[in-house]
Design a protein around this nucleic acid. Sequence first.
DNA 1: CGGCATCCCGACAGATACTG
DNA 2: CAGTATCTGTCGGGATGCCG
Lengths: 135, 135
Amino acid sequence: MTSSAAPITTYEDSCAAVGDGRAVREVLDRVGDKWTLLVVATLRNGRLRFSELQRHIPGISQRMLTLTVRQLERDGLVSRTVHAEVPPRVEYELTELGGTLLQLSIALGDWAIANQPRIEQARQVYDAAAAAKAG
Amino acid sequence: MTSSAAPITTYEDSCAAVGDGRAVREVLDRVGDKWTLLVVATLRNGRLRFSELQRHIPGISQRMLTLTVRQLERDGLVSRTVHAEVPPRVEYELTELGGTLLQLSIALGDWAIANQPRIEQARQVYDAAAAAKAG
DNA sequence: CGGCATCCCGACAGATACTG
DNA sequence: CAGTATCTGTCGGGATGCCG
């Protein structure tokens, strides 16, 4: 059963899931690193080759892109296609499973966009209070 | 506006959001660390005191719990209440904003639960292929 | 009880150089 | 073009000990 194919879980199931901790731990260890979700998001519109991927993700090094796509491939979230040409061409594309992760990435992006102002404001309030307390 | 209260964004908006990269980067830097989402998930049923929180999250050190709740408090995701008693009692509770993050945590947990088997299988396939290629 | 300060180490990320 | 190899620095995070 996939999360996209069915309603998945009841609220209680969800609580059980996060309550365990291991599930969240697992997925965080997997996609919580610095680049994974960005690579997934970058592949949202279809296949891209290595250099295109790197151009679309500012700041990522060749090494980290290699490691990230390698892990994504291993986990079955991204497919890797090597074309026997000169110069060589390698293309990456989200699998169906990777597409479900993309949904999460989008949800995360939405949340960030929607709530960043409030968080920023909360920080300023907190820091101001801390400064007042210290000073 | 929260991500749970309204559809928020069109698909295109979502793509723009993740496409930027900074939004995902921001939220990942914030909640992508080792413990944040676990703490949020643990507070799903209401307020807990420090020691209770620590008991419910296997493996977390006192130091990391302190740092995590401090940051959550600073970001306005968790409220911290100090009771003037002996022995001292400090309670933590999700704010309304923190509640919206809980929804994401649940979604992440759901995804993990639903897809862990497939990922595990993909890994075994990949590793087997790699081993065959090497050996 | 709750939390801060200090020390320390392993993991991971960046830069650079080399290869098929 | 698409990697791999190595070296190096940074930093998250654990252990320990002390304070309100």
